[in-house]
Deep mutational scan, measured.
Amino acid sequence: MTYKAILNGKTLKGETTTEAVDAATAEKVFKQYANDNGVDGEWTYDDATKTFTVTE
């Protein structure tokens, strides 16, 4: 399944996708990606669109 992350960081804005077996696995991948890029904020998840959003 393909999951998407939308990054609304102070220094990084954009989107990325990952293939994962479930939302929990995708969330770990996206949170690591955000952390590696200095983005730390509030996370939300929309199951209907399989989209995570982080906003700083």
Rank of each mutant, 00 (worst) to 15 (best):
E56L: 06
T51C: 02
T25I: 07
N37M: 15
F30H: 00
G14A: 14
E19G: 05
A48T: 11
D47T: 08
T49C: 04
M1W: 13
K4M: 06
F30W: 01
Y3K: 05
V29T: 09
N35M: 15
Y45A: 00
D40Q: 13
F30T: 00
K10N: 11
E15G: 06
E56W: 10
T18R: 04
E15H: 09
K28G: 08
T16H: 13
G14H: 12
I6N: 05
V54I: 13
T17C: 12
E42F: 12
L12S: 08
F52P: 02
E56Y: 10
K13H: 11
L7F: 15
N37R: 13
A26K: 00
Y45I: 00
T55Q: 07
K10T: 12
K4E: 04
N37L: 15
E42C: 12
V54P: 01
G38Y: 05
G14V: 14
T53M: 09
A23K: 14
G14C: 15
F52T: 01
T55K: 06
W43D: 00
D36Y: 07
N8T: 06
A48N: 11
G41C: 03
I6E: 04
Y45V: 01
A26G: 00
K13M: 08
D47F: 09
D22Q: 03
T51L: 04
T17F: 14
Y3Q: 05
K28A: 13
Y3M: 04
G14I: 15
Y33K: 03
D22K: 00
K50I: 01
W43Q: 01
T16K: 10
T17L: 09
K4T: 13
N8Q: 09
T44G: 06
L7S: 01
T53V: 09
V54H: 04
N8I: 14
D46G: 00
G41V: 03
V29N: 06
T55F: 07
A26M: 01
E15N: 06
G14D: 10
A26Q: 00
N8C: 14
V29I: 15
Y45H: 00
T18E: 03
K31W: 07
K13D: 05
A5M: 15
N37C: 14
A23D: 05
K31S: 04
T2Q: 11
Y3N: 04
E19R: 13
Y33L: 09
V21K: 13
W43H: 00
K50Y: 09
Y45W: 03
D46L: 03
A48C: 08
E15Y: 13
T11G: 11
L12W: 15
K10M: 11
D47Q: 10
V39I: 14
Y3G: 04
M1S: 13
K10S: 09
K13A: 06
D40I: 14
E15R: 06
K10Y: 10
K4Q: 06
W43A: 00
T16N: 04
T49H: 05
A24V: 10
N8H: 09
A5R: 00
T53N: 05
D47G: 08
W43K: 00
K28N: 08
A48M: 10
T18S: 05
G38N: 09
Q32L: 08
W43E: 00
K4A: 05
A26R: 00
G38A: 06
F52Q: 01
A34L: 07
T18I: 14
E27D: 04
T17V: 09
D40T: 13
N35E: 14
L12E: 05
K4H: 12
D40S: 12
A24T: 09
A5C: 15
K31E: 04
G41I: 03
L7T: 03
G38T: 03
T55N: 10
T17G: 04
L12M: 13
Q32A: 09
T44H: 10
E15V: 14
T18Q: 04
K31M: 09
N37D: 02
T11M: 10
M1Y: 15
I6M: 06
M1K: 13
V29H: 12
G38S: 06
F30R: 01
V29K: 08
K50F: 08
A48V: 12
T55D: 07
T44P: 00
D22H: 03
I6V: 10
M1L: 13
T17H: 10
N37Y: 13
A34K: 00
A20T: 04
E19V: 15
G41P: 02
N37G: 05
Y33W: 15
V39H: 03
A23F: 12
E27G: 07
T51K: 02
V21H: 12
F30Q: 00
F30K: 01
M1H: 14
W43F: 04
D47P: 14
V21L: 12
D22Y: 03
D22T: 04
Y33T: 03
A5G: 04
A5N: 03
K28E: 09
D46R: 02
G9I: 07
Y3I: 04
E27F: 15
Y45T: 00
N35K: 15
E42Q: 12
A24C: 13
K50R: 14
D36T: 08
T51G: 00
A24P: 08
T53I: 09
A23T: 07
T51F: 02
T16L: 15
G38I: 04
G14N: 08
V21Y: 11
T16F: 15
D47H: 11
F52G: 01
V54T: 02
A48I: 12
T11R: 10
Y33N: 02
K50L: 11
T49F: 05
A26V: 01
E19N: 13
I6Q: 05
E15P: 03
L12D: 04
E19P: 04
D47I: 09
E56C: 06
T2W: 14
W43N: 01
F30E: 00
T11N: 13
G38P: 01
E42M: 12
E42K: 10
A48W: 07
D46F: 04
T44V: 11
T16D: 02
L7R: 00
Q32V: 08
T25D: 09
N35W: 14
T51Y: 02
T2C: 14
T25E: 13
W43C: 01
G9A: 07
A20W: 02
E19I: 15
A23S: 10
D22A: 03
A5H: 03
K50T: 02
V39R: 01
A24L: 11
T11S: 12
A20R: 02
K50N: 08
G14P: 03
T16M: 15
F30C: 00
T16Q: 08
V39F: 14
D47A: 14
T51P: 00
L12F: 15
T55G: 06
Q32W: 04
T55S: 09
V54W: 11
F30L: 06
D47R: 07
T16V: 15
K13W: 12
K4N: 05
G41W: 06
T44K: 09
T55H: 08
N8A: 07
F30I: 03
K10E: 07
F52H: 00
V21N: 12
A20E: 03
G38F: 06
T44W: 07
E27L: 15
F52C: 00
Y33Q: 04
T25M: 11
G9Q: 04
Y45C: 00
A24W: 10
D47W: 09
A20F: 02
K10V: 13
T53L: 08
K28W: 08
D40K: 13
T25K: 06
Y33A: 03
W43T: 00
D47N: 08
T55A: 05
A24H: 10
K50D: 02
L12P: 03
T25W: 07
K28H: 08
E27M: 14
F52V: 01
T55E: 07
L12N: 08
T17Q: 10
A23I: 10
V29A: 08
T16P: 03
E15W: 14
F30V: 02
K31P: 01
G14L: 15
K10L: 14
N8W: 11
T25A: 14
A5P: 04
W43I: 04
T55L: 07
T25S: 13
E56H: 06
G41A: 04
W43S: 01
A23V: 11
T18M: 09
E19S: 10
T18K: 04
E42A: 10
T51E: 04
A48G: 09
